[in-house]
Amino acid sequence: MDKNKLPAPDEGFVVTQFLAVRDVARSREFYVDVLGGEVVVEEDPCIVRLANSWLIMNPGGGPTADKPGVTIVEHEVGDEVSSFLNLRVADVAASYETWKARGAEFLTPPIDRGAEIRCYMRDPDGYLIEVGQSTGLLDRG
């Protein structure tokens, strides 16, 4: 483990995303092999650097002293979501083709929505991931 790659700033803070996953190895493989992330910590918890951010993945678990009464549960796959990972890319068509070839399952191909071109995929646990490229949004000057 390279401690210099951990999400541990010398000052201020960094944003990381925690995902409760059913199978750490399967999720790690998706974020590394499909999306091109880099393993920082293999497990307990798994930490993957993904572009300029980090994903922390571990199974769910019950309350602890620092979160009394709170239980972390794995995502229930369905059509209702309350949050999702948003990946902003320079070229959505190229990202779509590359990630699809590596096994990503997209809901649709990229769709031009005026301000952006975007599409969505799901990770192995069913978490929704938006892949978007700003286009018309940049013209608002």
Rank of each mutant, 00 (worst) to 15 (best):
S27N: 01
E116D: 14
D125G: 07
D23G: 02
R28T: 05
D91C: 03
N52L: 02
E76D: 11
S82F: 12
S82C: 13
R118M: 13
C46L: 05
I117Y: 07
Y31S: 01
V81L: 06
P68I: 15
L137C: 12
S27T: 06
L87I: 10
V70M: 07
N58T: 14
V41E: 08
G141E: 15
P124E: 08
G141C: 13
Y96I: 09
N86T: 15
P109M: 12
V21T: 08
D112M: 03
A8T: 14
L35Y: 03
A93F: 13
R26H: 02
I47W: 00
L35T: 01
P59A: 05
T135I: 08
A94Y: 03
G132Q: 11
D91E: 12
P9T: 07
E74N: 14
H75G: 08
I72M: 04
Y31W: 10
Q17D: 07
S27Q: 12
L138S: 14
S53R: 09
V70N: 08
K67G: 13
V15Q: 03
A93V: 11
R28H: 01
V48N: 00
E116C: 13
E29V: 01
V77P: 11
I56G: 01
G69M: 07
G78K: 06
V92A: 06
R22H: 09
V32A: 01
V81H: 10
L55A: 10
P7D: 11
E130Q: 06
V81M: 06
P110E: 12
G103A: 03
L55K: 04
V89G: 03
E116H: 10
A104R: 07
V14N: 08
S82P: 07
L19V: 05
L50F: 00
L50N: 00
D139T: 15
F106W: 04
H75A: 15
R26K: 14
V73Y: 05
E43S: 15
V15N: 14
E43V: 00
M57W: 02
T135H: 08
A25H: 07
R113K: 10
N4Q: 11
A101T: 13
